[in-house]
């Protein structure tokens, strides 16, 4: 971790990430107007997640962080997944009627 005090990544990497983020922003606006059927939402979320990952890995130096930090971040995603999964499994199944009530 000797590079810590100096900050990681070069200016080149930052510029590269910045340009990619700009391109992805334009791409997501363009994609929003396309008729992709059920795929509009996954595409929008996929692009957003790619952008978020770039910011976290390069701008926030997660790529060069200790494993413990990566674990903390991973745990947040795990608990977010629990939150979404458990709540969605309630709301999205409320209209399900047992077959013997039909």
């Amino acid at each position: 971790m000797s590079a810590h005090g100096k900050g990681h990544g070069g200016v080149g990497a930052y510029i590269g990430v910045f340009l990619t983020l700009m391109a992805l922003t334009l791409l997501t606006v363009w994609a929003a107007y396309q008729h992709l059927g059920i795929w509009n939402t996954p595409v929008a979320l996929g692009i957003a997640t790619t952008k978020a990952a770039l910011v976290a890995l390069i701008f926030m130096h997660l790529k060069d962080s200790p494993k413990l930090t990566a674990m903390v971040v991973g745990s947040s995603l795990l608990f977010l997944a629990f939150l979404i999964f458990v709540t969605a499994s309630d709301y999205l199944t409320r209209k399900w009627v047992p077959i013997y009530f039909r």
Binding site: T25, T28, A32, L45, I47, A48, K51, A52, V55, A56
Partner: peptide
């Protein structure tokens, strides 16, 4: 990052 998700 929060805004990156809020926008779309």
């Amino acid at each position: 990052i929060i805004w990156i998700y809020l926008f779309p």
